[in-house]
Design a protein around this nucleic acid. Structure first.
Lengths: 254, 254
DNA sequence: TGGGAAAAATTGGTACTACCAATTTGGACT
DNA sequence: AGTCCAAATTGGTAGTACCAATTTTTCCCA
């Protein structure tokens, strides 16, 4: 929003997206006509149309002859999460936590599937990632990258494509916004993480699904707590529902 | 694919999407120029550009001055799942099963969160949905709708927005393709479902998270088995990886 | 006065042209 | 071969014109 957008289409797109997400147009309401929008943004109708196609693909609007209408937010694509986090200067702690909860769920199940299928190669890959992380010392800038590579490997090796797509999408949108705010791990917490990772490694070696699950759970809980604290310190709000425009009144116009 | 697309943009979009998903362009490879595509589809460059914007929003391509390039499939949005299912006349049984597995995971956790938070109103809503289903008899065409309304209610009431977005997206894409193939529940299986739903209802009343979890798990397992059988009978393939174009060669061009 | 059908204005869909700026490509030169 | 520069290519934007579907308004008749 502060940086000038590289293209007019992107400008129109992100502005309209923001306006829809902030509820300036209520679900089912008509959007201004393309010609009006072109006039307002001082651009050609082509750029406006391209922006509308993008909104439509996100599931935020429906275009048809006679006019475009906005859709309810929870009918939208997962990809609106990022913009939703951008609505406030500091991402909403509750929403971030919900995302992490879903990620925890997915990674946990991925690990379970991995062990259940007994994919030797997959387990080996994941364990190698763990080893790579454990080899890093505090202050190493690659710590986060290594940590992410671990969960990514787990999701890849579990063989569940939808799971991978979801996790990738979530991670992308979160990372973009959270990277600068991620708490620098201090000695103590890094030690805790490493201990848990060591547990996880042992569980993987012993093909112990319950232990692995427990270690992963503790690991992500640690992450969630740290991140929530960091966000709240930064003055984050903590109420998802306040972000959403008008609770869907039953029976919106088709 | 069989039905003629309502607009030229949609035509170009779905055709290109199909070609990308079937691997006719390898990840990182350049797409034909907009002018070439316009020529090929016998349409104006505007329509082609709108289609490209949609592909870009899906995460399947990246456009920049100098040319558009296709991205790796697992960097795409969750919304490519539907088209991915369309690659074959009968949706791939394995992929569908993976989707259901994720849905099961989400609904299960939603139920857990619901009980954990002890939201009286939410629990009441869900129990009402259960009652509505139990009131229907075999052969009633609303059975499926009622069944879906149940899990939808659970996801809505659990208060986790990302979860709702994911589940909605998954369900939408699955339903569109699977609705005509959904197995008509016979007396016996309907009875089993109703018994499990009754269990679930009891668990909800008693705020018993473990029982609820178990009932839900059994319920979705039933669904998965039925659907997989139906798809395999219809001659579905059963190998997700065969669907994906070229396993991502490490280090694709930026 | 109310309802409904016809006419007018609006709107999205498509096509075509022209020009700019960034990138890519290919060849000339060192 | 390696480098650099210029030309061709490509995406981004602007503008116009027209069509077909939809919406809105108008007006007539019961």
């Amino acid at each position: 929003m502060s940086t000038p957008h590289p293209t007019r289409t992107e400008d129109v797109f992100s502005t309209l997206r923001h306006e829809v997400l902030t509820g300036q147009y209520r679900p089912g309401e008509r959007l201004p006509s393309e010609r009006e929008l072109a006039l307002r943004f001082e651009t050609g109708r082509g750029a406006v149309r391209e922006a509308l196609r993008k909104l439509e693909t996100l599931g935020l609007t429906k275009s048809a002859r006679g006019g475009s209408r906005v859709a309810a937010v929870d009918e939208a694509s997962l990809d609106v999460l990022g913009p939703l986090l951008d609505l406030q200067p500091v991402p909403d702690a509750e929403l971030v936590d919900q995302c992490l909860k879903v990620l925890e769920l997915l990674v946990g199940d991925a690990c379970d599937q991995l062990l259940a299928r007994g994919s030797e190669a997959g387990i080996a890959v994941v364990r190698e990632r763990i080893a790579q992380f454990l080899a890093l010392s505090a202050g190493n800038p690659n710590l986060l990258t290594a940590r992410l590579a671990l969960s990514q490997a787990m999701l890849r090796e579990c063989g569940n494509l939808p799971m991978r797509l979801i996790a990738n999408g979530l991670r992308m949108q979160l990372l973009e916004r959270l990277w600068p705010r991620l708490p620098e791990p201090d000695e103590a917490s890094l030690g805790a993480v490493k201990a848990l990772l060591w547990d996880l490694d042992q569980a993987l070696e012993g093909r112990n699904r319950r232990s692995a699950r427990r270690a992963l759970q503790a690991l992500t809980q640690l992450n969630r707590d740290h991140l929530r604290a960091a966000l709240c310190d930064a003055g984050a709000t903590c109420d998802v529902n306040a972000l959403l425009p008008t609770p869907p009144s039953r029976g919106l116009p088709s």
